[in-house]
Write a protein that binds this DNA or RNA. Structure first.
Lengths: 149, 149
DNA sequence: TCAATCTTGATGCAATTGCATTTACATTCT
DNA sequence: AGAATGTAAATGCAATTGCATCAAGATTGA
């Protein structure tokens, strides 16, 4: 086994700590305004983005990076609160399509007003333009993840 | 309200996604080996680092970035599993000092064997030396608290 | 065709978390 | 000293999560 390089440990520590601290500051903003958490936002965004045909839970799951049962239960809550509708699926009797409701659209927008401002505060105010660009590139390289936004 | 700059949104999205993906890969490694999760590791590391005098829960809490009750319950489990000992506190009758046990030391080392290797795999293999250095610096800059006072 | 298999999604149950509060001791102020 | 206030830590209860499994419908293949 290779002993980990100190700089790599420092990268991981900084990544884990900073992402958590920023995440919690943003969530605190939402909660202070009586709004639900970011996992609701992410789900609403994906369902809204899917448009009038909706999206199936199994297709939503990898976008949200959640286990299957967590996706199922998150959707339960969104449906219960009238933010999303389940529609019977013509082409597959097991499943259903998820479509955003007007109320869901409104909530997503209201959350974005705060969320976007929080991102601006947390990221925009601490990094210059070139720094932000470099950071985004290095992070994507680290995750080998396609840019989702 | 300021509309958030697209590059800032992309930084935040990449930060949130990548940290989560890497975190889950590391946790999966630990779980596959039958080892506990990173929150246990973090607590063991801080208690071990505190040495023979131990550390008080209220001092541990900010290091672990956990709420008070979560710290209390995490410690319950570590004590229940014989990894950490609670010792009555001479200077303050309300509290106690936490000291690592031999068994706790062994577990932390065993976890580190895997954890360190996982860091090396996730970080070391995807970034060059200068890239890692730059990333660490940018992340730390991002985490600096925007002083509101 | 129809049994075997796979996929989608839900769910029972135990463990964990979040919130609010409590308990116990310490400190401060008069 | 003793009441008021502050701080350390635990805990009751409801909500959420994780794990394993199940149920229902789709697909495959003899």
């Amino acid at each position: 086994m290779t002993t980990p390089d100190d700089i790599h440990v420092r990268v991981w520590t900084a990544l884990a700590t900073v992402s958590r601290v920023v995440f919690e500051r943003i969530e605190a903003d939402l909660k202070a305004a009586g709004l639900p958490s970011l996992s609701w936002y992410d789900a609403l965004r994906e369902v809204e983005r899917a448009g009038p045909d909706g999206i199936r839970p199994f297709a939503l799951r990898p976008k949200l990076l959640l286990p299957q049962y967590a996706t199922s239960r998150l959707l339960d809550r969104l449906v219960r609160d009238g933010l999303v509708e389940r529609r019977a699926c013509v082409e597959d009797g097991r499943g259903h399509s998820l479509v955003i409701t007007e109320s869901g659209r409104e909530l997503r927008q209201k959350m974005w007003d705060l969320y976007g401002a929080a991102i601006e505060r947390e990221i925009g105010q601490t990094l210059s333009g070139p720094e932000a660009k470099t950071l985004a590139e290095l992070l994507l390289q680290l995750g080998r993840v396609a840019d989702p936004e």
